[in-house]
Design a protein around this nucleic acid. Structure first.
Lengths: 138, 138
DNA sequence: GTATATTTTATAATAATTCAAATATGCAAT
DNA sequence: ATTGCATATTTGAATTATTATAAAATATAC
């Protein structure tokens, strides 16, 4: 679950990407301490806080490169921004509408049954379940 | 399913909105011929084609007003744009990743089971299932 | 070390959406 | 029908998230 810097470098090289300073700093934030859900903006402020200067364009470049390489998965929950999930195994999400927090639903519990026949000539790419939650005003 | 103009005006009045020319034109496009899934841009070009000039800002205003009034439901499937569904009863969707087409999954068929316990202090707002499909290159 | 390919970055461009000020309109009262 | 008022709409600019561009920096292979 937690990767050290040699693991991170290997992960990057295996994706046929160069282990640049910026890329390693991002990988450290994403993968060194368990699974995460991040937005580009959040990752940008975090990496800046560590003292490594990385432009927002680089954040986007890397999020997309990581996603293409199967190292990240994009989760669409909010039409105004993109979330990236370091857990790339099939699973679903809780999304807190007020805070914007995204949380994995543990695999195995929830199941989707009886998907009806697909539109003509199509095949399933993924089945995404989002359980939207709110904190009720009491 | 199909509403005439008196029905449309009532629908708007019941939502405590004024039956303005622009709003009626939008309601006509949305509700007069069965359920639909639209984006703001699409609705804008459709209404312009009918000869009624409505600014894009008005489209957004009305889509949001209709949504607040429970006359539309926003469906988040694509991080780059919002879809609005005239079917406000609980149901799920097929989303064609290549064409952007959104389609209702008939109610009753698909079911979601064993939702695990929610994050502390939250309650369910909605459970959204999106079956993403693609047309395979043969 | 040098050449080559990749990466970064600043900045500009774009797309979707929101905002604010000016204008127009529906509606109730006449 | 006309008027006045409250609210709706328009418009264009502002904002936000994201993508594109192209020059400079850096990593890698030789």
């Amino acid at each position: 679950m937690s990767l050290n810097s040699a693991d991170l470098e290997k992960k990057i090289r295996d994706a046929r990407l160069r282990p640049t300073r910026q890329r390693l700093a991002l990988a450290e934030l994403l993968y060194a301490h368990g699974n995460r859900h991040v937005t580009a903006e959040r990752l940008h402020s975090e990496v800046m806080e560590t003292g490594v200067s990385v432009s927002l364009a680089t954040i986007y470049n890397n999020l997309h490169q990581f996603t293409s390489a199967g190292l990240l998965r994009e989760v669409v929950v909010d039409s105004s921004r993109s979330y990236f999930d370091t857990n790339v195994t099939p699973h679903h999400h809780f999304f807190h509408e007020q805070t914007g927090a995204l949380e994995d639903i543990p695999k195995g519990a929830l199941s989707v049954q009886n998907i009806p026949s697909l539109p003509e000539g199509t095949e399933i790419s993924s089945v995404d379940v989002i359980v939207r939650v709110t904190t009720p005003r009491r």
